[in-house]
């Protein structure tokens, strides 16, 4: 076309602009590698197998939560009820008989409870047209109320089936059990997202819900399913978290909603929907837990972690945006 000469001219003028797409696509991975290099060079313990194991064990529940959050953010929504749901599931787990036989029933109950909460979120967002922020904020508060009403506000401990400790902290073939679980969930949901018609529809609905609706896609169903996936994964994350922590208080999952959102956003998603994916989100999770680990290893006060995390979230999210986007 007539534009060729001009295109060449433009390419000359903006070498920087050429670097930008690369950075936008792989910026977080580059950042993650840099962060790990910093960690390795400043703290010899970082690469110790024990440390790596700890780091990943601790990060696995966040990985699960972020995995689910990815689905919801792809629909141009977000789920603030994740943390509250994790706490609630933890409370449920301790409220049933502390017997290893009950592990499977507890899992099933937690998943069913999560599916219900997710359905309510999705229903509010699609059928009642409540903005995702408010719908899930409300669910978060309601779950909090239900949980405290149930526990009367008292912390619970020692009523978990002992098997949960193994799930949360044990290793299998020297790989943490909860990492195996995370790996399995990643595999399943990567297939769902990247190989099934549902995954395709999720990206289409997220990218342009109106166009998807007018092309005969049941946009509402796709969105409700995304909230359900998110909540089910949060429930599972809650169980692994309680296994890791060992004891339960009513706030055990606090902060996971915002951390998971931050991880997904760092991973290249957009609140406008239709952008991002599982592996970006997981890289975002790794960034967060490496920061956390590094702060501990370097002996900084734990509060420093919050400061660094905050700065990194803002910075990392700014990679993906071009001005006027």
């Amino acid at each position: 076309m007539s534009g060729t000469t001009i295109n060449l001219e433009r390419a000359e003028t903006s070498r920087l602009a050429q670097a930008k797409p690369f950075f936008q696509k792989y910026g977080l991975y580059v950042f993650l590698v840099l962060l790990i290099l910093i960690a390795v060079s400043t703290s010899p313990q970082f690469l110790a197998p024990r440390n790596i194991q700890n780091l990943l064990t601790e990060g696995a529940p966040l990985g699960m939560a972020a995995l689910g959050q990815t689905f919801v953010i792809l629909t141009a929504g977000l789920d603030l009820s994740v943390g509250s749901l994790m706490s609630s599931v933890a409370v449920i787990a301790t409220s049933i008989a502390p017997d290893n036989v009950m592990i499977l029933p507890i899992f099933l109950i937690a998943i069913a409870f999560g599916a219900l909460v997710g359905f309510v979120n999705g229903w509010l967002v699609t059928k009642r047209k409540v903005s995702p922020f408010l719908a899930t904020l409300a669910t978060m508060i309601v779950l909090q109320g239900l949980r405290f009403a149930w526990t009367k506000g008292a912390p619970l401990s020692g009523h978990l089936p002992p098997g949960f400790r193994v799930l949360g902290t044990g290793t299998l073939l020297s790989i943490p059990v909860n990492l195996w679980a995370l790996g399995f969930l990643i595999l399943v949901f990567a297939i769902v997202l990247y190989r099934t018609t549902y995954g395709r529809k999720l990206y289409l609905v997220g990218g342009n819900p109106r166009a998807a609706f007018l092309s005969g896609i049941h946009a509402d169903r796709v969105i409700i399913a995304a909230y359900m996936i998110c909540a089910v994964l949060a429930s599972i994350a809650g169980l692994f978290l309680v296994g890791y922590v060992g004891s339960v208080d009513n706030w055990v999952g606090k902060g996971y909603e915002l951390d998971s959102i931050a991880a997904v956003m760092m991973g290249g998603a957009s609140f406008k929907g239709g952008k991002g994916g599982i592996f970006g989100s997981l890289a975002g999770v790794l960034v967060l837990i490496v920061i956390y680990n590094l702060v501990l290893l370097l002996g900084f006060p734990i509060q420093t972690q919050l400061v660094v995390k905050g700065l990194v979230i803002i910075l990392a999210a700014s990679f993906y945006l071009t001005r006027g986007d």
């Binding site: 990206y203 289409l204 990218g207 342009n208 109106r210 166009a211 998807a212 007018l214 239709g274 952008k275």
Partner: peptide
């Protein structure tokens, strides 16, 4: 752009 295509796909 708004009702037809999903531009990012």
């Amino acid at each position: 752009k708004n009702e037809g295509l999903v531009l990012g796909q």
